[in-house]
């Protein structure tokens, strides 16, 4: 049984509306793209969409109350909220340096969470 799905390609300002024909977990056909990057994007977005998560964690002893952080690689989109839950437990103490590891292997992804600001 084949089904269809729609995706907007965000790789360039053309914002093509991609139409995907799917067979179970496979993308069998992509149309609506104006260039060859579209189908590759559709495949990636459909099979394993990943994102960089940026958020903040608590920090004490600094002029501000939140330390901005990010995952230092892309993680599956489906587990963003699991990462948020793990990070809500984290409490840092100033000083912290930009780039310092805040949490290793977040949500079992093998990806680390790092600070994006130095706070003293």
């Amino acid at each position: 049984m084949s089904t269809t799905a729609n995706l907007t390609c965000i790789l360039c300002p053309m914002s093509c509306n991609l139409e995907l024909v799917l067979d179970g977990n496979r993308v069998v056909q992509v149309s609506g793209n104006s260039c060859k990057l579209g189908p590759a994007y559709a495949e990636k977005e459909f099979i394993n969409p990943t994102r960089v998560l940026t958020t903040t964690v608590k920090i004490e002893g600094a002029r501000v109350s939140r330390l901005p952080v990010k995952t230092d690689g892309e993680i599956p989109k489906s587990i963003l909220f699991d990462c948020m839950r793990e990070l809500s437990e984290v409490k840092m103490k100033a000083p912290v340096k930009n780039g310092e590891i805040i949490l290793k292997n977040v949500a079992g992804t093998g990806v680390n969470v790092v600070a994006t600001r130095s706070l003293t």
């Binding site: 930009n98 994006t116 130095s118």
Partner: peptide, 10 residues
């Protein structure tokens, strides 16, 4: 690179 705002400021 794709930086965050705070990193760009740093």
């Amino acid at each position: 690179e794709r930086l965050t705002g705070p990193e760009y400021a740093e």
